[in-house]
Amino acid sequence: MYEPVQQGKILSGIWMTIILSFYCLILSVVIGIVGAFAQGSKNRFIRGFVQGYIQFFRNTPPYVQLLFFYFALGQFTPTFSPDGWLEVPIISNVGWAIISLSFFAGAFNVEIFRAGIEAVADSTKEAAESLGFSRFQTFRYVMFPLAIRVSLPSLNNNLINLVKTTTQAYGIAVPELLYQSVTIWNDYPSAQYPTMLLVFVVYILLVGVLVMSMNSWEKRLRIPGYGQ
């Protein structure tokens, strides 16, 4: 465990987990915002599309999604050849993990933001409309800023889940923390329990940092004289 090679594995695993989590968090929130905006569209097909997306990604296991993205869709992605011999797909397994997990968590985020938007009074929206705001301006400057404040606690939950779900990228050989740990205890069976313990501790710390930053964000968004 304290051997440099193993230590390197753990550190690079933690780093990969952080990278995965970071991109997935950002992307899934972006998907959530865009989806929530599209849900308010006048166009029936756009609304139907968002609904279909949510149903698919929310109602199927993320692990299967991951495998499907990597193995099924991965076959059809174009490849490039750096040296004339190798064929490297333009989306790596890390890329697929980020895409798949972001869409998975994004589906929940759309619903979380939708609930937040529904909590904003219709009359507030009407006030914006009657001042001549476009639908986008109403969403961007009035509805979303208010909705996010309502949504934060559930968003918090979903993002915590997302960080933990990144362990499933193990299934497509993304060298994140769990993957690295398994290689360690496959080589050194005696290291199995301590390594597991280490994985727990790392996740507790990672999620702790996330929760703390979300809480401080929540505090910063607090509006004087509004809510409690």
Partner: peptide, 15 residues
């Protein structure tokens, strides 16, 4: 742009 409206519940943007 031509018609202003004021509501019963004020409907200011609280943020």
């Amino acid at each position: 742009k031509r018609v202003g409206m004021v509501f019963q519940q004020y409907n200011l943007f609280p943020h």
